[in-house]
Simulated scan of single mutants.
Amino acid sequence: MNRAHLPGILAMAAIVVASNILVQFLFGQWLTWGAFTYPLAFLVTDLMNRIYGAGPARKVVFAGFLVGVACSLIGTQIIGEFGPLVTLRIALASGIAFLTAQLLDVAIFSSLRRASWWKAPLASTLIGSSVDTVLFFSIAFAAGLSWIEPGNDVGWANEALPLLGMGPVVPLWASLALADWSVKLGLALIALVPFRLIIGRFGPDPALR
């Protein structure tokens, strides 16, 4: 491992750990505090990609994935009011969504790195975040995928309610997903500011030299 990549690995690990902890605490009716920290993982991936290239960015992603697996294993051993804090479905959903979305982010960023500075991070984060949201919430809570873990009752997540309390009637998890996705989109735009400031200190994109 290149020592220069260590800050990115540590930052990704910190985000994954913090998000796994904060997801246990509600923020309003549709969100958890983890919704505000997890999207920063895309910022870390994009910074690593811009500064060091796609290879190091993937290493950071895999490091974050391993930390996430460790957090899930720990969560399965902690029993809360309604059972283990992390079920098999949530563990699978989290791992699959993270790895798929982050690697997709790296690929899209790399394909757009010769475009205007903001296009690669914005497009890769928006698409990656969307894929992440769809994969996580559908795998974790959709009634049609109950065969993944038959003993895990996700009936609460499939209760039919108005979308975000005011739209058409949909399963509760759809409202949770939409709220989570909206936060990710908003943070994707905000993250362009620190992205620009940080890459400005490292000079031209090494992949374009």
Rank of each mutant, 00 (worst) to 15 (best):
I15T: 02
V17A: 14
I21W: 01
L26T: 14
G28C: 08
W30Y: 13
W33A: 05
A35Q: 07
A35W: 02
T37V: 15
P39Y: 08
A41G: 13
A41M: 15
F42W: 08
T45K: 07
D46T: 13
R50I: 12
A63W: 12
L66Y: 14
V67C: 07
V67G: 06
V69N: 01
C71M: 15
L73H: 00
G83R: 02
T87I: 09
G95F: 09
L99A: 13
A101S: 14
S110E: 12
R113W: 06
R114D: 14
A115K: 09
S116F: 09
W117C: 05
K119M: 14
A120E: 05
A123Q: 03
T125E: 05
G128L: 13
S129M: 04
S129W: 00
V131K: 05
I139D: 00
A140Y: 07
G151S: 14
N152E: 15
L163V: 09
L164H: 03
M166Y: 09
A174N: 01
A174E: 02
A179P: 02
W181N: 01
S182N: 07
V183E: 01
L187N: 03
A188K: 02
L189K: 02
I190T: 10
A191R: 07
L197A: 14
A207C: 10
A207M: 14
